[in-house]
Every structure is written in C-alpha cells, then in structure tokens.
Design a protein around this nucleic acid. Structure first.
Length: 591
RNA sequence: UGGGGAUUGGUGUAACGGUAGCACGAGUGGCUCUGAACCACUUAGUCUAGGUUCGAAUCCUAGAUCCCCAGCCA
C-alpha cells in the first residue's frame, strides 16, 4: 500500500494562482507513476500521436493529442507525431499537411520545445519491418498463405470452430522465397499474404493467424512506388512504437483485444534475442505498453471519418473545414480557441467508460475563454431603424468605449453616435409582455455606453409591420448614466446608421438535431439540422471593419464571432462561434 | 450461445475497506451599463440480489444492462 500522504493528488494545470488546487490522477497517470516508481523504462515517458492521414483530425483526436502531449509535459518526457501511413489506398498528402497544421495549432509541440520527440512516418520503417518479418519466417512464426480474402473469411471459423489454412505448414525457406517475390512484385494484388502463425483456435479472432503483409500495387504518398507490399496495422504499430522508444502507447478501447497481438509480435521478435546483443538474432527490441482509453464523444455530432468524408463529398457541408464540422480545422474556423479545446479535453477526464460529453460543455469552454480574451464590439444582426427626434440632423458624437470590461488593459475605442441608429429587431416590442426590459412605447432604455432614450412612437408599413421606431434622447445621460441617479431596466446595443458597415454574418447552429445522429433511423443524415447555417446582412460599428481573418470578438449581447478567411479588406465576414447564454430567451420560450 | 471491456446525481468525473466529494448543468436569490460575466445558496447519485466485515462504491458470488471483436482498414 502507498503511504499515508495522498500520492494521487497533483497540482492541477491552470496557472500559479491555482497551484493550491489539486485533482486526482487519471488511470493512465497512475500507471505511469507506478512504472516510474518501479524504474520501468528507466523512468522515461515517451508518448506519441499516430494518426492515419486519411482524413482531417476532429475533436476526438484533440483529446488524444492533449492526453499524449500532456503526459509528456507532466512527466518531463517526449512527444512524437507519427503518421501511421500503412494503407496507401486511403491516404493523401493533403491530410498529412492538415494534420501537421492542426496538431501544431492545438499545442502538440512535436518539433520544438522541451518535449519535442519529432515527426515520423511509419513508412520510413518499412525496410526494418520487412527485415523483422523475414526473421519471424525463419523462426517459424510466419508463413506465406495463398488463400484469397474470401477464402480466409470462409475459413475464419466460429467461436467454437477453429480457422484453417492449408499453407500453415509451408516450410520456412519456401515462405521466405515467396515473401521475397511478393516484395519484388512477382505476385498480383490479393494473391498472397504473410500470416503470423499464432493460434487458429483462439477465442480472440485477432490471434487466428492474422495477416502481416498484403500485396498492394499502389503508389504511396510518402514512399512513392518503392513498395508493393504493405504491413497491416497490428504488425506495424508495435514496431513503430518500439523503434521510436515509446514507453506508453495510448490508443482507444476498440484495440483492447488487439493488445495480445501487439505483445505477441514484439515477444516473437525478441525470442532468441539477448539483452547484450550476443547470439544469432541480436539485441532485444524495446517493448512499449499499450493502454486503452475511451474516446471523446460529444452529443449532436458524428465523428467517424467515413461519415465526415461523406458529408464533404455530398456537399452537405462546404469542406473539411466548414465551421459546422467537428474537425479541428472547422472548429478553428468557427472561432473555437485551442485553449478552450484543451480545457474541454482536460475537464472531462480520461477513463475507460464510454460516455457522451454534452456538446454544451465544449460551448461553455469557449465562452469561458473568449469572455476573458475577446474584445467587445457592437453589431446588429436584424436591424430596426430608430430615429432620435430631438437629436440635430447631421450632428455626430464620438464616444469612448471600453474594449473589454474583463480586461482593463485592452483600452478603449471610438464609436460614433448620430440621429439615425439601428437596433436589434428583438429589442423592440410594441406590446411587450411582463419583464420585457427592452424598448417599447413609453419605455426608457439605455443605449449601451451612450445615452438614455425613450420611445415615443412607431412608423408602420401598409401591412402593419413596424418599420421605424421614434425616440427622444436625454442629452444629460451622455456616457450612459443619468446625473439625477435615475435607473433604467434595460440596456440594448446599437449602431449609427450613417457610420455602420454592412457585412455578411454567418450564424451557425449545431449540425444535427439529435443527440446521437442516426440512432432513430440508422442514417445520420436524417438528423441534419436544416437551419445549421443562416446568413444575414449585419451592420457593424466602424471599428470592426478592420477585422482580419482569425480576429475574434464578442458582439455585445449576441455572442462570439470570428472573422472568416472569406473576408475582404474592410469587409470582414463573421462566423458566429457561439451565442451568449440567454436566460431571457429561455424564459420567454417557456411561456 | 465465444472473447474483450464498462456500469457512482441530469452530464462528466473522484474515492483504491473508514464522513460518497468536485466540475458542468439546472433552480433560487444577489450584483450589474451585456437578461452575459461574477457571487451565494439549493438540487440530485453508488445497476440488481445475496454474502464477507465492526464498517463495502470498493472484497466475494450470482445476475442485469450497454459497448467492442470473425477487413488482405486503422
């Protein structure tokens, strides 16, 4: 038993002012600390993130990146980015590039800084893997099988009935010859495989003589046409980890029953090898430890690359980086910050329990971060004209506004005020219900940071719609406070009509209406939210027109918005990241 | 009907035989020039049934429910 002081308590991340806080170790950290206490791997910690470059990274990968990099950071270890590029049929350079971009953006420092372990490609190890494979053949632990994929499938057996292969006892020298011919391109796709001789009767089907190599005459994004045989995941993955000196190989739950295979391959290579390298087979290779954890699964989204790819191909979204996509590129474009994503990943913890994470949790993480970090601005999404009857025509007042009340260092900005303004259509009601604190006939409200105004009447069109609101302004309230100390219940945002800039605002909502898309009908596309994107012509205060792609703001009372890559100089396009919490809408909707 | 995992408030997570705690949400109140933020309080939980023990979320037995596995994908 560990001693009385709680070894499970560690300082939580979050800065020196929070150093007093502690959180418990997750199960992986407990394993690592036990390993270090026992002197395993010489106390080293070396992790890796091993994506296959067959799609863009999504928020589930973000969890894995944060976990792996976080462990390297916490234990003073190293972190590798490694492309698990063993299947050229699905892999592309575009994906390689996007993955490097996304891992870097998220803060996975694989190529610089104290924890950088490097950038690797599994395909760079193909020669070494091939040599190991020949070794297993010579040791009688692998054989070349001539069964077709179909035949293998038919002979797979059942839990009770073992699998079969007529080639299992092919002599080693014959397998060796055929394996070399496979490499030399003398055999067509699918004709031969190299299989591990493990256990055709194993209740774990992964051990029923799994395929190690298949023939595939397909150019590879990284190795070109050098190879026409490619290693399978189970054979390759442990070797990649071993060659890189990975200590803790962290993967997801579905690989749990591959772990015996992971270990079998490394032990098979080490059989006959020695610690000092003496003997016919040489020195033992490093044996990392595979550990599995549960995926990050948010509600209201799909994460499988197959499903994401389908939406891209069918044009359901505009690309892998569409701001509605759960991809890291999409979330970034939407306005999510790396900090918010990292925090969300840490907050939900790491376990083996397959749970759903409320999407609102991720939304709250970005609200929290942006509330502290984002400069404020005013924009009107659905404009309603307001005329101040007692404000002189042509006269402009220039007011100083706080850039961010949460951050005094952010300073102030200038905002023009004049006779004709626009306010949000939702902020006016001709016949308001109780507790409507906004503008209505006879009601006085504050225009944010500016003046008190009182509604004196409305102008309507032939159909009876309000097209204009008439108000009087109290000049003594300049700056937003009344010298006589009188209070108003409501404060609303506004822009000056003569100075506002009209821009495109893209109002994003969740992509799916169901917590688990596809659960109802079996087809996730049946649960698409038809209003996941609404585009409006918004009016913004002039200072905001200078926004450049990537600039993020809080539009007061509306939400957080990020200038999109589609922006033109002086004409930004804004993506709504997330709305502000809106208890009024919730209360009003409940009636 | 084989094998591998999992099960603690609404959600996520802690506890490692000794007071079931934390976060998020939700509710109420306060504060407020954002119906935001912030502050305070409240809410609500050990899958079931037995057993061991002075004492069980934790150990044992039996069961229930859910997830993964029979690609030459990863």
């Amino acid at each position: 038993m560990p001693d009385a002081s709680r070894p499970n308590a560690v300082p939580a991340p979050g800065g020196p002012d929070k150093a007093a806080e502690t959180r418990s170790l997750n199960f992986i950290e407990q394993i690592i600390e036990a390993d270090r206490a026992a002197g395993k791997h010489g106390g080293r910690v070396h992790t890796r993130f091993p994506p296959e470059p067959n799609g863009y990274l999504h928020i589930g990968h973000a969890k894995s990146i944060c976990l792996n990099f976080g462990l390297a950071e916490r234990y003073g270890g190293k972190f590798n980015l490694r492309f698990d590029d063993t299947n050229p049929e699905k892999e592309e350079q575009e994906y390689v590039d996007s993955i490097i971009r996304d891992v870097t953006w998220l803060g996975g420092r694989f190529d610089s800084g104290p924890h950088a372990g490097g950038l690797y490609y599994a395909s760079d190890y193909f020669e070494q893997m091939y040599a190991f494979a020949e070794e297993l053949i010579r040791k009688g632990k692998a054989y070349v099988c001539a069964l077709t994929a179909d035949e293998v499938s038919k002979r797979r057996g059942t839990p009770q009935i073992p699998a079969t292969s007529p080639f299992r006892d092919r002599p080693a020298d014959e397998s060796l010859r055929l394996f070399r011919e496979m490499r030399e391109g003398k055999h067509p796709d699918g004709s031969l495989t190299l299989r591990a001789r493990i256990d055709l009767a194993s209740p774990n089907f992964n051990l029923r003589d799994p395929v190690m190599y298949r023939v595939l005459h397909e150019p590879h994004q990284h190795t070109g046409d050098k190879w026409c045989i490619y290693p399978m995941y189970d054979w390759a993955h442990g070797l990649e980890d071993s060659l890189e000196g990975i200590t803790h190989s962290i993967c997801t739950l579905e690989f749990e029953d591959h772990r015996p295979l992971y270990d079998w391959f490394i032990r098979a290579i080490n059989e006959g090898r020695t610690d000092d390298g003496s003997g016919p087979w040489g020195r033992k290779i490093h044996h990392p430890q595979q550990i599995e954890f549960a995926k990050f699964r948010p509600t209201y989204t799909v994460l499988s690359k197959r499903n994401l790819l389908k939406m891209v191909q069918q044009g359901v979204v505009k690309g892998w980086d569409d701001p509605r996509m759960p991809t890291i590129s999409g979330l970034r474009r939407r306005g999510y910050t790396a900090e918010a994503l990292r925090r969300a990943c840490t907050e939900v913890g790491t376990t083996k329990v397959e749970s759903f994470i409320d999407l609102t949790r991720i939304e709250n993480a970005v609200r929290d971060h942006l509330n502290k970090a984002a400069p404020r601005g005013m924009a009107v999404l659905r404009p309603l004209k307001v005329v101040l009857e007692n404000w002189p025509e042509g006269q402009t007042d220039e007011l100083d506004f706080v850039v961010n009340p949460e951050d005094p260092a952010a300073g102030t900005r200038k905002v023009p005020f004049s006779r004709v303004l626009y306010i949000e259509r939702d902020d006016f009601m001709e016949n308001p219900p109780k507790k409507f604190f906004r503008l209505a006939p006879g009601v006085e409200v504050r225009l944010r940071w500016a003046y008190f105004v009182t509604c004196t009447g409305v102008v309507k069109d032939a159909a009876g719609n309000v097209t204009e609101v008439r108000c009087t302004v109290d000049p003594a309230t300049r700056g937003g406070d009344a010298p006589d100390g009188r209070k108003v219940k409501g404060t609303i945002h506004w822009v000056s009509a003569a100075h506002a800039v009209e821009v495109e605002a893209r109002l994003y909502d969740r992509l799916f209406n169901a917590e688990q898309p596809g659960k109802r009908t079996g087809n996730y596309l049946d649960d698409l939210n038809p209003t996941s994107l609404e585009t409006v012509r918004a009016l913004i205060e002039p200072a905001l027109a200078a926004a450049k792609p990537g600039d993020t703001f809080q539009f007061e009372r509306l939400g957080y918005f990020r200038a999109d890559e589609d922006s033109q100089p002086g004409r930004p396009v804004f993506n709504r990241t997330v709305t502000l919490r809106d208890t009024w809408a919730k209360a009003a909707g409940a009636d």
